[in-house]
Each structure stands twice: as C-alpha cells, then as structure tokens.
Design a protein around this nucleic acid. Sequence first.
DNA 1: TTTAAAATTTAGGCGTGCCTAAATTTAAAA
DNA 2: TTTTAAATTTAGGCACGCCTAAATTTTAAA
Lengths: 205, 205
Amino acid sequence: MITESVEEYLETIYRLYERGVATTTTNIAKELKVAPASATQMLKKLAKQGYLKYTPYRGVTLTAKGKRTGKEILRKHRVMEKFLGTLGIPKSKIHKEACELEHHIPHDLERAIYQKVEGEKPLPPGAPSDVVPLTSLLDGQKGVISFIGGGRGASQRLADLGLTPRTEITVIKSALFRGPLLISVRGTTLAIGRGVASRIFVRAK
Amino acid sequence: MITESVEEYLETIYRLYERGVATTTTNIAKELKVAPASATQMLKKLAKQGYLKYTPYRGVTLTAKGKRTGKEILRKHRVMEKFLGTLGIPKSKIHKEACELEHHIPHDLERAIYQKVEGEKPLPPGAPSDVVPLTSLLDGQKGVISFIGGGRGASQRLADLGLTPRTEITVIKSALFRGPLLISVRGTTLAIGRGVASRIFVRAK
DNA sequence: TTTAAAATTTAGGCGTGCCTAAATTTAAAA
DNA sequence: TTTTAAATTTAGGCACGCCTAAATTTTAAA
Ligand SMILES: [Mn+2]
Ligand SMILES: [Mn+2]
Ligand SMILES: [Mn+2]
Ligand SMILES: [Mn+2]
C-alpha cells in the first residue's frame, strides 16, 4: 500500500521536476518542510520501491513509475483546488486543504468531481475526441492548440496574439467559471477572457 | 492536535451510544476491527484527554466533550455519504470513502458541500428558523415535527400515518434527490415519498 | 461455592516517519 | 592545493497506533 507520505514526496518531486528545479535532497526537504535527514531516509525507501533512482550526495531522478504517480497526485491536487474554489472556500485555505484531500480521493471520485466542476463542455461537431476547450485545463497544465472555434474574426484576433494551431500553451492560473485565464505562450505571459478561451481547443499534454 | 484515530474511536463510540449498545472495550474493538488490547490502550488515552470516563473492566462513558466530537465526525460522515451519492459513486464504496473523507473535511467545507447537496430549501413564510424540511435530514438523524406545509389534505393524510406535530421521526435512509425516505415513527418503519417529505417541517435533534 | 469460560488488561514488540547531533562528502574560497 | 563552508548521510531516539501472548478480573455454569 502506498502511504500518504510517499504520495506527498512523489508529488513534490514531480512538481520540482516539472518546474525544472534540481531534485536534490535539500530542495525536496525544504519543499516538504522536513529535515534533510528525514528526506534522505525516505528517498532511499522510494528508490527501493522503484519510484526513483537515488545516487548518494547527488539527488534523485524519477522513474516512469515515479512520474506517473507524482503526476496523478498533482492532478488530484489541482482538481480539488478547482472544486474548493467553486464552493467559495477562501483562497488562503485552498492550497492546504487540496493538498490534504488529494490523498483521500479515489480516482473515480476525482473524475466525478471534475465532471461536476467543469460541466459538460460541448465540442464543435467533428472535433477530435481528445480535444478540450482551454478552459478545461487545470493550473499548470500544458496543451497544444488543435483549432480555434468561432468565426474568422476570432481566429484572426487570436493569431495576432500568437495563438495558432500547434502552439503550446501553459495555463498558469485559471479561476473557475469567472475571470480571465493567465497563460504562457512561447515564454510570454498573457491574460485572455474566458469567452475566447472556451473557443481555443487544445490537446492536453 | 486530534488525530484521525482519536476521531475514529469517538465516532464509533458515539454511534454505539446512539444505538444504545454498551460501550465496552470489546464492542468498540469489534466495531473498529482492532484487537481488544489496542482499544484498551486508546481508551485510556481518550480518558486522559477528557473525551470519556474509563473504568477498568467496565467500559466507558462519553463526556460532553466526547459526545460533541463524536457527533461532529458522524455528521461529517453522513454529509459525505450524501455527497458521494449525488456524484453517482457506487453504494458499495460510499460508506468506506465517506469514513475516510470525514477526517479531512474542515467544518466550513462540510457546510459548503451540504449547501450544494441540499440546495436552498425555501421555508414557508413565518416558519421558525430552526426548522427544516424532513428531506434535509441525514441518515440516522432524528427530528421532531414542527408543522406540516401544504393544504388541509396533506395534513390529513399525514395525520393518518401518525405524522402530527411533536411526533419524533428518525430518518433511516434518505437517498438524495430521488426515491422515498425510509423513516421510523414510534417504532414503526414507513416509506414516504420525497414530495410529501419536503412538506413535513421538523426541528432537527 | 467452586470452577470454567469470557472479557479485559499488561507486557513486549513492530513499522512508519519525524527529529537532532555528529560524521562524512562535495563544492567553493583562499 | 589547502582550507572552509555547505550539503548530505549516519546514528540514536521518539510518538503513534497496531499486534500477539500472557496475566488478571469478571461472569456464568456446575
Ligand atoms: Mn498533499
Ligand atoms: Mn498537494
Ligand atoms: Mn472514519
Ligand atoms: Mn465514519
């Protein structure tokens, strides 16, 4: 059985990895607010369980298994944050509560909550089924633009912003249901309204 | 800090107390699927922390503090069960998942979810504010009938069933949003439709 | 009332994950 | 290259909550 602690470590390491921060004992310990000695201990254990490769004094590298697990917890974390947001829980508490709940939400419950929170976003007829509106992505998720819905006008305005098919987008912040999305495109950060965002269809990465 | 284990024990003991079952070491251990020796250990600890009175070889009695805490966890459990039900989580998993989540849901989140799940049930004008429709009660909750909404006809039909003001009702099973409620009145179990149930206004106990 | 069975407690241990203090190793400065 | 500082690991301990086996106490049967 995978413990809550193991999940927490893997989520943290995956987050560092995603951000391009070195996955060293100290960084991990700092992120988790734990003594370095405690991290060392756990990292050895995670290595033994095949979640990562551990080289003494050199830090760790997630294995495929480790990445898969870390990513999954992080996704639960983000779904829970969105959910708590829709319920009007104060921002100051959202991160912490999501980070606790993420360990107690089985996969199907996560899916159910996600559905609830996102509603059923109808796709334009004929769209590939692995494509979703940009508004469906969670904070931190990346996607590649598949196509732009709506008329020529919309396409043109978005093209002016550099938002054309095959462009990679990272969602920085996407408050739920209201307010603009903060996205990052080719190193530039920009804010776009929810209306337009719902007409940008992406393949989530 | 109150641990998850402490919560689990208090919830269990409170449930036994509510059901009128003796709160002995063995019963508690059995309910929690734990060895009697483990229960003994914990019961001593709970006594030391003021949640209950412990008499060796004789079992325990919850203090006011213990009742308050046990009741609170049990309420969270019930709210989560309703919530999971609305999300379409299979019945077979609901109890277990609720019993895990109950320990990770702060009070305001519980309230928010409860609101979401119940919707805002409008009360008839002039009704006392501590009164709610019977459909708002959770499984296992008791309430005392305050008044019957709707016309004379409704009142008469319900009176025939013995449902008159000041009658105590225990909700046995209340699936969410659909299906009849199973209730217990003066030792008799009966099923009533949601429509009528929403016109029976009770003071929750 | 004596005896056997059931309930409960005591004793000794285990696994998990954390901590501090003391090595040890690696990196940076002189 | 030697010395010092920073990072990391090792060692020894602690709190929790669980378990089994062996007492002890209570209850029920004879
Ligand atoms: Mn977490
Ligand atoms: Mn988290
Ligand atoms: Mn529980
Ligand atoms: Mn429970």
